[in-house]
Computed example of a mutant assay.
Amino acid sequence: MAQRNHFGQAVDEALAAWSGAQPLPRITLAGQYCRLQPLDAELHSHDLLHAYSQAQDDRDWTWLAGDRPTTIEEMARWVAGKVIDTTVNPFAVIDAASGRAVGVVAWLAIDEQNGSVEIGHVTWSPLMKQSVLGTEAIWLMLHHAFACSYRRVEWKCDAMNIASRRAAERIGFTWEGRFRQHMVRKGRNRDSDYLSMLDNEWPLRDAAITAWIAASNFDLQGRQIRSLNSFHEQF
């Protein structure tokens, strides 16, 4: 809420109690259908190679920085590259039913001082599609970030990657704008769409997602009974 300072200028609300967010520890985050485990080349490379090889082609990698690894050596290097990157805090998505790694997601742009963090490197395999796993994985990330006092969680995607933007909006992220000529990716220009979710929005988003992922919202074939959007509208 806008306020006035002693010069009569409009300024934003004061945060007298703000002292920064907490560090995001590298711990396992457990849900009903999946858990997020700190990414490890030795533990997860074979599972991820199998999971990503289920795709009929490489269309899911069009907007990613790298290409799909096709050998165990390539996969181990791809995973290790994320693990040793000090700007990234990566997780493997473990399917609770099979116990196998089926995707990757990470924290990026961790800014404890300002309470901002990004969810990125979202690399789902075909084994996660048309399932609750992707939604629950992002819910676990959001829950952890806001529990650690972050004020803002960001989602960025290639402006051409409509599926990524729609996935973020479905979960409850708000589109903020487009950074034109933001970067060069695989020899092409990339405009980037920016979306975010704020701490004061989280309680209602949390209520909607929690209701959606409840076992009672899925039939015996694993099909949703109510859409996530219907729960957003309810809450």
Score class of each variant (00 low, 15 high):
Arg100Val: 06
Ala55Asp: 06
Pro69Phe: 07
Arg152Thr: 05
Ala159Asn: 15
Asn189Leu: 10
Gly177Val: 01
Val153Trp: 03
Leu39Cys: 13
Gln221Ser: 09
Asp158His: 07
Glu169Val: 02
Gly103Phe: 02
Asn114Lys: 12
Val79Ala: 04
Arg185Glu: 14
Asp206Ala: 13
Val153Arg: 04
Gly31Glu: 11
Ala30Phe: 03
Arg165Tyr: 12
Asn161Glu: 13
Arg205Lys: 09
Val79Ser: 02
Glu118Cys: 08
Val132Trp: 00
Ala10Ile: 10
Gly103Tyr: 02
Gly81Trp: 12
Leu15Glu: 10
Trp139Ser: 10
His232Pro: 11
Asp40Ile: 00
Gly20Lys: 12
Asp95Gln: 09
Leu198Arg: 10
Leu220Gly: 14
Thr87Pro: 07
Gly187Met: 01
His44Pro: 03
Trp124Ala: 13
Asn161Cys: 10
Ile84Thr: 15
Glu74Asn: 08
Ser131Met: 01
Trp124Tyr: 15
Ala97His: 08
Val117Tyr: 01
Asp40Asn: 13
Trp107Thr: 01
Gln37His: 12
Arg26Glu: 06
Phe235Asn: 09
Cys148Gln: 15
Trp18Cys: 02
Ser192Met: 13
Arg188Glu: 08
Ala76Asn: 10
Trp107His: 01
Glu74Pro: 07
Asp12Cys: 08
Asp40Thr: 04
Val93Glu: 01
Phe173Asn: 02
Thr86Ile: 15
Leu43Ile: 09
Val79Arg: 03
Phe173Gln: 02
Asp85Pro: 07
His182Ala: 11
Trp107Gly: 00
Gly115Leu: 10
Leu64Lys: 05
His46Trp: 08
Arg35Gln: 07
Ser45Gln: 02
Phe179Ala: 13
Pro25Gln: 06
Leu29His: 04
Asn229Pro: 00
Asn200Glu: 13
His6Arg: 05
Leu204Met: 15
Gln32Lys: 12
Gly31Ile: 08
Asp60Ile: 04
Gly177Glu: 07
Ile213Ala: 08
Arg100His: 14
Gln113Asn: 14
Asp206Phe: 06
Gln181Trp: 10
Leu29Ile: 11
Ala2Tyr: 11
Leu39Gly: 04
Asn5His: 00
Val79Leu: 03
Ala101Asn: 04
Ala96Pro: 06
Phe235Ile: 03
Gly99Phe: 08
